[in-house]
Design a protein around this nucleic acid. Structure first.
Lengths: 247, 247
DNA sequence: GCACGAGGTTGACGTTCATCAAGGCTGCGC
DNA sequence: GCGCAGCCTTGATGAACGTCAACCTCGTGC
C-alpha cells in the first residue's frame, strides 16, 4: 500500500496526432470534437514495470487509455486467490470496473514500462453528453469488454488446456497484428504463472502445453519469445478438431 | 430460426409505479425525468418459457429490462460448445452485448414465462445525453456487468466444484432476497445441465455436489426446490475454509 | 568471473472431475 | 391407468490436470 512513484507528464496531449487514433477513437469525429477530446485527456502517466496503475479499493476517478506498454488486471477473492482478468496493450481502455461503485475492484499492474493517457471520468461524462459520436463509441467500448469477457467465460468453462492456450496465442497474435506488429513472432510480457492464472491453469501445465505445441511444430518457444509456425494448426485445436486424445 | 411468437403489449408503461424502480432506476430522478423515461420504455414484450428474447446474430435494437420471469444467456463457440454466461431476473438489464457491434452475440432465452420492458437503444442514447443521472446510472449498470463477469472469471479460473456451487447458491440467495423473496428457500429455474454450463462443470458433478451438500446438512434439495440450511457453512466453503480434502 | 534469484522445464504421482452407464422420479398425453 | 420423455441421481472407471520436487536457464549485481 505504499505510494507508487508515478511520473506525471504535463506535456501537451494531442489525440489528433496520436498513432492510436484508429484504436481509441470513433472514425469521423470533427476537428471541433477532437479539440474537446484533447481538453479531456489532460495528462499522461507513466507506470514502471511492476508498479500498479490502480488497486482494488482505490477511489475511481479516471479511465486510462494505454499509449504504450503492457498491463495485467487481477481480481482477488476474500481468501487470497488471484485471478488475472485480462492483459491490456496500446489503444485499450482500462479502469471501466471502477465506474459501478466509484471504487476500483481490480488491481492493474504494468508488466513493462507503460504510458497511459489519463481520462478524468467526470469530464468524460460531460463530453460524452455533448458529442454523440464519442458517447456512442464509449458505450461500444464498454459493451465490447462485456463481449470479450463472455469469450473468456466460454474458454474457462468449456475448453481443455490445449484449446485454452491455442486460443490465447491466437488472440495475442491478432492483437499484435492490429497494432502493426508481427502476428507470428512476439514476446510474452507475462510469466507462465500469469498466463496460467488468466487461463485457469497452473504454470506447469502452461509450460507443458507450450512444449507440446513446440514438439508438434505448431510454435517455436524460447522462454518469453514465441513464434507461431502453424496458425491453422492452432485454430484447429481451438475448434476442437484436434483434441489431445487423437494424437 | 423460425420467428418466435411474442405477444407485444402496448399497455401504458409506468416506470413511476413499477415496483422494480429501486432496482432499475437511479434514486432521485425528478418527475420530469421519469416522464422522459416513460416515453423511452414504449412497450413490453412477453417471452414464453423456452422461447428466446434474442439470438446471436440478431440485429441489436433494444435493451430489455426484466419485469418478471427468469432468463439465461448463452454464447456458442464455432464448434458448437455452449456456455451459459448468466441468469437474469426481475430488475436486471439484458442485451448489453449487442451495443458493441450492433448485433447480438449471445442467445437470451426465457427459463420461465417472462415479461420485459423494451428500451429502444437509439432513444436511450438521446435521453441519456439529456438526463445526467440516467446516463450515469446506465454507465454504472454496464460497469457492474463487467465487475460481475470478473467474479465469474475468478470462480471459473480458480475455484473447485464445491466452491463454485456454494458461491452460486449464495449468489442466487442474495439476489432473491434483494427482490423480496426468501433468501433461504427458492426454486431453481434452470436444469442441472444449465447450472453446470454456467459453472464449468458437468451436470453429474452438479448433482453430486448438491447431494453432498445435502448430506452435510448445508442445504435441502428436492429436484428444483432448494432450502439453504447453513449459509455460513456455504460461505466457509466459498472462502476455501472447508475444501473437500478436509472432510 | 561468480553467486544468486526469478522464472521455466520436466518427471512421478495423486486428486478432481468427466465419462459411461444404469436406473429412478415426475409430469404429461393418451 | 399406462407409457413416454425429460430431468435427475448414483456408481464405476479413467483422463486431464494439479501437486511436489528436482533441475535448468538466464539475467543481474558484486
Amino acid at each position: 500500500m505504499n505510494a507508487p512513484s508515478f511520473s506525471i507528464s504535463h506535456l501537451k496531449v494531442a489525440c489528433s496526432n496520436c498513432n492510436l487514433r484508429e484504436l481509441c477513437l470513433p472514425v469521423g469525429l470533427s476537428l471541433a470534437d477532437i479539440e474537446k477530446l484533447e481538453e479531456l485527456v489532460a495528462t499522461r502517466k507513466r507506470v514502471k514495470r511492476g508498479e500498479s496503475l490502480f488497486r482494488a479499493g482505490d477511489r475511481f476517478e479516471s479511465l486510462y487509455a494505454v499509449r504504450l506498454g503492457f498491463l495485467k488486471s487481477t481480481v482477488m477473492s476474500s481468501d487470497g486467490r488471484e485471478q488475472v482478468t485480462g492483459f491490456h496493450m496500446a489503444g485499450e481502455l482500462v479502469g471501466l470496473d471502477g465506474i459501478s461503485s466509484e471504487t476500483h475492484s481490480c488491481d492493474t499492474v504494468a508488466l513493462e514500462d507503460t504510458e497511459v493517457c489519463v481520462i478524468p471520468y467526470e469530464r468524460l461524462e460531460e463530453v460524452a453528453a455533448a458529442v454523440p459520436m464519442l458517447r456512442n463509441h464509449f458505450h461500444k467500448v464498454m459493451s465490447r469488454e462485456i463481449v470479450r469477457e463472455h469469450g473468456v467465460m466460454l474458454l474457462l468453462g468449456s475448453m481443455h488446456a490445449e484449446e485454452r492456450l491455442a486460443a490465447f496465442l491466437l488472440n495475442l497474435s491478432q492483437r499484435f497484428e492490429a497494432r502493426g506488429y508481427s502476428r507470428t513472432e512476439f514476446v510474452l510480457r507475462m510469466t507462465r504463472a500469469e498466463i496460467g492464472s488468466f487461463l485457469g491453469l497452473k504454470l506447469e501445465t502452461v509450460s507443458r502445453v507450450l512444449s507440446r505445441f513446440a514438439q508438434d511444430g505448431l510454435i517455436e518457444v524460447n522462454q518469453k519469445h514465441v513464434r507461431i509456425v502453424n496458425p491453422d494448426g492452432l485454430r484447429a485445436i481451438v475448434s476442437g478438431q484436434a483434441p489431445a486424445c487423437e494424437r
